[in-house]
């Protein structure tokens, strides 16, 4: 059967419905929990095996040794593909993903974040 303007009923009923569009920057969008967003690093737990660096598909992680059993991580959010493979590779669970996803920046340097190791308290002893 052929009917012109088949969608008309649905289309007119849309007039009385709320728009499906979300006015994004004004209405914040909730991501489901366990959404793979920005990666955070806990220097306390890191043992410096550097397996995360090896497995990262984008080469976004750089782990540096800054002292005896002290490591700091440098992340390039511009390179990261948010696959969260590093969080699975890390057997000490020093890397975790958060739900944060609004990371855009006009400055490339701002995308590079460093997780510093805790200041050395053994030196003060």
């Amino acid at each position: 059967m052929i009917r012109p303007a088949k969608m008309i009923r649905q289309v007119l009923s849309s007039l009385f419905k709320k728009p499906a569009t979300n006015l994004y920057p004004f209405n914040k969008f909730e991501m489901p929990d366990k959404f793979r967003g920005k990666i955070v690093f806990d220097p306390e737990l890191c043992v410096g095996c550097k397996l995360c660096m090896k497995d990262c598909p984008a080469g976004a992680i750089n782990i540096k040794k800054v002292g005896e059993k002290k490591f700091e991580a440098e992340f390039d959010l511009g390179k990261c593909v948010y696959c969260a493979q590093c969080t699975e590779t890390c057997f000490k669970k020093a890397l975790k993903f958060t739900g944060e996803f609004e990371l855009a920046s006009l400055d490339r340097e701002k995308l590079k974040i460093t997780f510093n190791a805790k200041p050395d308290d053994t030196a003060s002893k």
Binding site: K54, D55, C56, P57, V81, C83, Q85, T89
Partner: peptide
């Protein structure tokens, strides 16, 4: 790249 990286590639 390694196999595990290639999964994402």
């Amino acid at each position: 790249r390694t196999y595990i990286q290639n999964v994402y590639l």
